[in-house]
Design a protein around this nucleic acid. Structure first.
Lengths: 163, 163
DNA sequence: CTTGACTCTGGAGTTACTACAGGGTTTTCA
DNA sequence: TGAAAACCCTGTAGTAACTCCAGAGTCAAG
């Protein structure tokens, strides 16, 4: 099949497939005479695997490790467990951070009643002079990301996945 | 004061201060004869404001809006409230997403007992053929970011903030 | 044989910075 | 006084994981 079909069957944008190839997550595809990439079931499997990992918020590096395990099935899967445990740890930590953050934001929100002038807005004042509760950085030392997305994720929710 | 002092007093890397100037969050600093930037209390105030907002995980765009409110204090602060409410919404949503994700990861983790070979590793199998619970994308449609950081945040925890 | 759908490559843009290289300036202190 | 150390400058490139675009080629249908 061609790249468009693979894209549809896995719900992956075409650009992303080419990007994965550049990054080495997918092997270089064979080409037709007209220089079109052609894929088979093995590629589809592998891409689906990658996309499932990404939907679980794993990094490319984590996925690379898992793919290596998949490719060399003789080794023990202890390391797979370790990787997953670490990843679960990251997620749990990020949740804790965000919950703290939410509390801080709600505290801040209560500083301001409706209908005032910005000059006396409790929120702006609080942000300006800085209460003690607000000094803990959100994403501080950890390797965890911010609340907002950079270059949109896409990963669409089950579009044309079936046939 | 010079940029290094401002950096120390706000716990902001020097590069970041220059970056904020480029981005227009901070006004262009006046210069000495030797072309060094010089800052006063107003700059310090503004930078501290920005850093506090960032520690609350706000985007530059959100901060820009807040700064505009700060600069034109005659307007009502309803919009400040709205912005904050929206931001709290983002954080809450991200928390929900991550909690779902955590559950999925734990389910996945239980697929594999220690000491097996990777060939029959339950986790790899599950990721390969894809159980129904694993199909919901993590960061799907929302404008929210992933679990791992891209270009490290830094925002160090209270280094030399006092004097 | 033309239209339209599909594909190709290469490069730039996204967030919020960080990390240089290759210079200039100021301070220190012997 | 002179040199080294510490500081500052600009500009560029890199980070994660893509997305989007231009400009061109290929293919199927009518």
């Amino acid at each position: 099949m061609k790249i468009g079909q693979l894209a549809q069957q896995t719900g992956t944008p075409v650009d992303t497939i080419r990007y994965y190839e550049r990054e080495g997550l997918l092997p270089r595809a064979a080409r037709t005479e007209g220089n079109y990439r052609i894929y088979d079931a093995v590629h589809l499997e592998r891409l689906a695997f990658i996309r499932r990992c990404r939907s679980l918020d794993m990094t490319q590096d984590e996925i690379r490790v898992l793919l290596r395990f998949r490719d060399t099935p003789s080794e023990s899967c202890e390391d797979v467990n370790a990787l997953l445990d670490a990843h679960i740890g990251h997620v749990a930590e990020r949740i804790r951070e965000l919950q703290q953050l939410e509390k801080q934001l709600q505290t801040l929100r209560e500083c301001c009643q409706e209908g005032r002038q910005a000059a006396e807005c409790g929120i702006l004042n609080e942000l300006s002079h800085g209460g003690a509760e607000l000094t803990t950085p959100a994403a501080s030392e950890s390797h965890l990301a911010a609340t907002h997305a950079g270059g949109r994720q896409h990963v669409p929710p089950r579009q044309g996945g079936g046939a």
